[in-house]
């Protein structure tokens, strides 16, 4: 019988972890952000203005997003980056703009509109170059989310002191990594059913995708297991967690077959910041949806004060 709350999930911290990510951030900084926003009248409403967003990220790739702001409100607004799940495309975040946020829904590389150059496919992203941390597909993907925050920092209609992150599954995992890479910027993180935590443990606990991609990869390449473990350690949320300074909300489904709850509990244990954990018995990867969204909205509102 599983005991998710007390299970041991261990990840080795690479000795050059900080240098590795500093190099990635330095690469990003070598490119002008060059954000281009194009207003989209038919996507906009009486209450919200929607923009198509493009900006430059790691490796010089142009990355897309949707930017939505209140049509009538008191700018500057709190900024919110919403991060998509593994198989999801970012939807236009009108509902967050309706609540008073300047909301940016990022389409990291490989997602539609950001896949002209890098397109590992789905399935495929999780194991793309997984034997090499320097060329692993997720490297640019992680940094694209950081760059999305920098887009908000560049916006005159965003309050730089009120920027938060929200996402579930992959969006939850990347909320953690982004908050760790921008500890002085991010004011709060809402992370549901966080993926990419305990990356080598998770495939031993489930046969559901996307972690099943790792089982498939190792079925064909069993000798690569140590190289895979070495690579994903650089990307594991458990290694980012101690660096997060922002208040963080974690919510978990206790029967989550996609992101095993053992890994979510491990993330919560590893966080040293102010943190809140909500667990939902009999819930799987929805992790309490739809009811949990009220908890998420309240958490973000507490820290980001939309409508102030």
């Amino acid at each position: 019988m599983r005991d998710p709350e007390n299970a041991t999930v261990e990840v080795e911290l690479p000795t050059d972890f900080d240098d590795f990510w500093a190099a990635g951030l330095a690469d990003c900084a070598s490119y002008p952000l060059d954000p281009v926003l194009t207003e989209m009248p038919t996507l906009s409403t009486d209450n919200v203005i929607v923009y198509d967003l493009r900006f430059t990220s790691y490796g010089g790739l142009r990355i897309a997003g949707w930017y939505a702001v209140p049509r009538a409100g008191n700018a500057p607004y709190p900024g919110l980056v919403t991060i998509p799940g593994y198989i999801s495309e970012p939807t236009i975040p009108k509902e967050w703009a309706e609540l008073g946020y300047a909301a940016l829904a990022i389409a990291p590389r490989g997602k539609l509109r950001s896949n002209d150059v890098f397109n590992p496919g789905y399935p495929g992203l999780l194991t793309h170059n997984i034997v090499d941390p320097n060329t692993y597909g997720y490297r640019g993907f992680y940094l694209d989310v950081v760059r999305a925050v920098e887009v908000l920092l560049d916006r005159p209609d965003v309050d730089n002191l009120r920027i938060g992150l929200q996402g579930s599954s992959q969006g939850g995992g990347l909320g953690i990594s982004t908050a760790a890479l921008l500890p002085d910027v991010i004011r709060c993180v809402a992370a549901g059913a966080p993926y990419l935590c305990g990356i080598m443990t998770a495939p031993t606990l489930t046969r559901s995708y996307p972690y099943e991609e790792i089982n498939e990869y190792l079925r064909i390449h069993p000798k690569d297991v140590d190289r895979v473990r070495e690579t994903v350690a650089y990307y594991d949320g458990l290694n980012f967690a101690p660096k997060v300074q922002a208040p963080t909300l974690i919510y978990l489904g206790l029967e989550d077959d996609v992101c095993p709850p053992e890994t979510g509990f491990a993330l919560h244990r590893t966080l040293t910041c102010e943190k809140t954990l909500h667990t939902y018995p009999h819930c799987a990867h929805h992790a309490g949806l739809p009811d949990v969204m009220r908890v998420v909205e309240d958490f973000l509102a507490e820290h980001l004060t939309p409508g102030r």
């Binding site: 018995p281 009999h282 929805h286």
Partner: peptide, 9 residues
Amino acid sequence: VTHLDGTDN
């Protein structure tokens, strides 16, 4: 549906 998606699944 119960919205307890483990139960529903």
